[in-house]
Measured scan of single mutants.
Amino acid sequence: DEIHIHFNGVTIEFRGLTEEAKKALEEAIKRGASEEELKELARRLIK
């Protein structure tokens, strides 16, 4: 299970995320999180 985020022309790929983690990332994107914020969020979620 993986998710691809297209962000300002950059694709960020995450693997092994739970549904909750995906929802958290989607919410962050909707509120306009920066690419760095998304990566940091993903790091926290994957652990």
Results as ranks from 00 to 15, higher is better:
25 L>V: 10
36 E>Q: 10
44 R>L: 13
19 E>K: 11
9 G>M: 01
46 I>L: 14
47 K>I: 15
18 T>P: 12
20 E>L: 09
22 K>E: 04
19 E>C: 10
32 G>D: 03
41 L>N: 00
13 E>H: 15
3 I>F: 15
15 R>G: 07
11 T>H: 07
36 E>L: 07
10 V>N: 08
43 R>H: 06
28 A>C: 05
44 R>I: 09
9 G>P: 02
11 T>C: 13
6 H>C: 10
24 A>D: 05
41 L>A: 01
15 R>M: 07
42 A>F: 15
14 F>Y: 06
42 A>E: 01
16 G>P: 03
29 I>N: 02
33 A>K: 02
22 K>R: 11
7 F>Y: 08
38 L>I: 12
23 K>S: 09
12 I>C: 03
16 G>F: 12
33 A>C: 06
16 G>V: 04
5 I>R: 01
5 I>T: 02
28 A>I: 07
11 T>L: 12
37 E>Y: 06
46 I>K: 06
8 N>C: 12
24 A>K: 09
34 S>H: 04
13 E>I: 15
6 H>T: 08
37 E>H: 03
25 L>Q: 00
9 G>E: 03
32 G>L: 03
37 E>M: 07
42 A>L: 15
29 I>W: 15
10 V>Q: 10
22 K>S: 04
26 E>H: 10
40 E>V: 10
8 N>Y: 02
44 R>C: 05
39 K>M: 15
25 L>D: 00
34 S>K: 04
5 I>G: 02
20 E>Q: 08
7 F>Q: 02
8 N>W: 07
33 A>M: 11
28 A>S: 04
28 A>R: 02
25 L>E: 00
45 L>W: 13
2 E>H: 14
7 F>D: 01
44 R>Y: 12
41 L>K: 00
6 H>F: 08
12 I>E: 02
17 L>P: 01
2 E>Y: 14
39 K>L: 15
10 V>S: 07
38 L>C: 02
32 G>K: 03
13 E>D: 07
43 R>K: 06
29 I>G: 02
40 E>H: 05
24 A>V: 14
43 R>N: 06
37 E>D: 06
25 L>C: 01
6 H>M: 07
35 E>Y: 14
40 E>M: 10
39 K>G: 05
20 E>A: 10
13 E>G: 04
23 K>R: 11
42 A>M: 14
17 L>I: 08
8 N>M: 06
41 L>D: 00
47 K>L: 15
17 L>W: 04
22 K>V: 13
32 G>P: 02
47 K>P: 11
32 G>S: 03
34 S>R: 04
11 T>M: 07
7 F>K: 02
3 I>K: 03
2 E>P: 13
25 L>W: 11
27 E>F: 15
7 F>W: 07
36 E>I: 08
19 E>A: 12
19 E>Q: 12
23 K>F: 13
21 A>L: 05
27 E>T: 11
7 F>M: 12
16 G>D: 14
2 E>K: 13
15 R>K: 12
20 E>Y: 14
13 E>S: 15
15 R>S: 12
23 K>M: 12
8 N>Q: 10
2 E>D: 10
44 R>G: 03
14 F>H: 02
33 A>T: 07
23 K>Q: 11
39 K>N: 06
2 E>V: 15
45 L>N: 01
15 R>W: 15
33 A>E: 02
